[in-house]
Design a protein around this nucleic acid. Sequence first.
DNA 1: GGTGAAATCTACCTAGG
DNA 2: CCTAGGTAGATTTCACC
Lengths: 157, 157
Amino acid sequence: MRNLRTMLDEIDKRLLNALQQDAHLTAHQLAETLNLSPSQIGRRRQKLEADGVIRSYTAQLDPRRLGLSVQGFVQVHLGTHGPEHSRSFARLVATRAEIVSAWTMTGDADYLLRVYCEDLPALNRLIHEVLLPHKAVSRVHSQIVMDQLKRDGPLPT
Amino acid sequence: MRNLRTMLDEIDKRLLNALQQDAHLTAHQLAETLNLSPSQIGRRRQKLEADGVIRSYTAQLDPRRLGLSVQGFVQVHLGTHGPEHSRSFARLVATRAEIVSAWTMTGDADYLLRVYCEDLPALNRLIHEVLLPHKAVSRVHSQIVMDQLKRDGPLPT
DNA sequence: GGTGAAATCTACCTAGG
DNA sequence: CCTAGGTAGATTTCACC
């Protein structure tokens, strides 16, 4: 059967939408919402997991309650673009827990980092004692999140 | 007792770390990893949920398998900054499923949007037919994600 | 920290298109 | 032959001790 059947019907989409909001919904609860039997809900969920549509189930934490009061984005420009410098920078990114996401982008910035820190001094230490000293980094530009209008919404299905 | 006891000990931190990676770990599995009894694991988890440290449990989907091949960030600059224009723009953001996150930032950009679209034309339609026509928006700058080095890592605990 | 009842998941089985 | 619905055994959770 493979993953040729990657087509998602309307019920799959509503199922994914529900699970994106609450991963602990039971098959029974989902069944009455989606007008299907609990058996079929379980079957569809297993298939979506096996196909890799559902990658994992994770707990969403409140950064504030963890003492992470500063959230921001850091644009990093590399001075030297050799592959070994890039890999070295990628390793640095991987080892720092404050950097929760990292992307390479089109346009002016080489990397965009999403960071969580306990306070502003911690963010400044990250920038001046970790990022800037790296041999491949030429300059960085950071922006602090002031307010979050929309938070990690579900992916559109 | 309230939330005065917001202090997290070492076991809480490891528990949160584990649940950030797999929300379906059972109390029994967590117990043997953390060298504690299943009862205490369940009790700690309930407390962390009640205190709001754990906000929710969600399914993480693979955007590619949903047909969302383009991921990007859009910086939006407002021309007029009145409160009613801001609220109008916030409503627009809330209604568009492609916009999964939105922040107000320090620095030059008024808003930063994280978007998922099925292809580049869809992103261009979002920009030119949805964002730019809005009366409060003066200009936008979009960057496409080329590669994701680090993906939605767990919050540092 | 441990125990037991209630609920849940999953694999297997049966029916219908 | 494929998809939907139902049932039994094992597992998990949660309130109580």
